[in-house]
Design a protein around this nucleic acid. Sequence first.
DNA 1: GTTGAGCGTT
Length: 303
Amino acid sequence: MAELYIRVGEDENEEPMEIPSEDDGTVLLSTVAAQFPGACGLRYRSPASQCMRGVRLVEGILHAPENDWGSLVYVVNYPKDNKRKMDEMDAASAVKMKRGIDRTSDLIILGLPWKTSEQDLKDYFATFGEVIMVQVKRDVKTGNSKGFGFVRFTEYETQSKVISQRHMIDGRWCDCKLPNSKVFNQYAGPDEPMRNCKIFVGRCTEDITTDELRQFFMQYGEVTDVFIPKPFRAFAFVTFSDDQVASALCGEDLIIKGVSVHISNAEPKHNNINQLFSNFPGRSPSLAAMFDRTQYRYPSSHV
DNA sequence: GTTGAGCGTT
């Protein structure tokens, strides 16, 4: 081969760099990539057709067109276009997932007739789509309905439809909305990294055992500890070996044995700003998010 | 046994 080096550039107009060829006249893609990280091939403008042509690439070896690299300038190919689009899609869907934009969440049903049962709710909402969970909130002493409840659907489309209209249930107009406890998560930015591996599991029922919690949370990652306070206090702690697993679960509503439990970070109450904002209807989400970040700068021992 | 624009036994 006459040429020991071929001329390669980022594009046709930029000053090319000379890249060494192998003894047999081929050029290794790895050699190109050493100068142009991420390169996946070469192309050049054909003097004959004036079109861009690809350089033959076989098993990491670039072959000279017509056995001669000549004095053409070769342009580096990157997988960039596809790759970047993929990355953006992944990031976007990850954010969407994390923000719960296309995830279902529990919906509060307001204005239920006192007589409406969970079976009534299930029968009614099943006409919109698959129902995961229904609840009628009742006075613990009397068992009387408090006139509101919750429902959770499998499909986000179902949830959207249900939110968008009023509902005639047992002779009363009812509204379904995102509960206030969800609004924070809807508007908060991406979470700060969590430093701890422990999650708080709220709204547990008394029949949920430590073993069942362990079995359930194993699907997300290695569980190193499960703690249920005695006597019953309607919450539990689950510790993972990986803090990213714990972090990813925070803000979720998960269904365990048909019960919707709420996952949040296991910070002591006095140091958890979520507690301060979570039941305050008029709060500013951005303010809450700002305070939320500050709590991680002053970590205190866990419960 | 009561009620009605409400938010889930941390």
